[in-house]
Design a protein around this nucleic acid. Sequence first.
DNA 1: TAAGTCATTATCCTATAGGATAAATTTTAA
DNA 2: TTAAAATTTATCCTATAGGATAATGACTTA
Lengths: 91, 91
Amino acid sequence: MDKTLSEIPEKEIKKYHEVVGKHVKLLRESKKISQLDMALAIGIKSIAFYSNCENNKYDKHFNMEHLYKICKTLGIQMSDFFKEVEQDFSS
Amino acid sequence: MDKTLSEIPEKEIKKYHEVVGKHVKLLRESKKISQLDMALAIGIKSIAFYSNCENNKYDKHFNMEHLYKICKTLGIQMSDFFKEVEQDFSS
DNA sequence: TAAGTCATTATCCTATAGGATAAATTTTAA
DNA sequence: TTAAAATTTATCCTATAGGATAATGACTTA
């Protein structure tokens, strides 16, 4: 049966990634953690890649595995993290 | 400065993906939505790929964009979804 | 003022995530 | 009991996500 594919605009997904990155940065800074330290904590040697994900530059963004590790490093729950994101996203 | 890379075991990440998939299935079924309908709702024509993500088969799992669309389709918040996942994951 | 630290800009390379196909199996409904 | 619907199994292909590098810029510290 032919059904419509996703009608959620790519712009909305991109915006969501932007907000996710923004809140990762806010939380990281609040814990006085450098981009380098956070990058290493999630298993990445590239500060540049990390920076681009936080800032959603060149279409880079955090994936599920990154976020899982970031939250663990920050000592917070994924659900709490997304609570923050949602509050920002819907306003 | 040389610092340790992520010490979170890959098995833990895999387990997390498994639990995420499990809860997507539970919620989908509770809303009487077929795998086909959900796959199409998130912009995927392949039921097989969708099934493999729900069941974490052949290392397939949902990514952030999938989950965003799934939650929107289910009419729930990402934070609420992860609340469920976390309760299951830590027990 | 200079050196060190931290972050950003831009681009390149490639392994794999993404997602398809087809056949088989299981479940449901007629 | 059979057919249809739904899901699973397994594998293949390729565009891009993942992540690197190098240079540059901004900020902090000595």
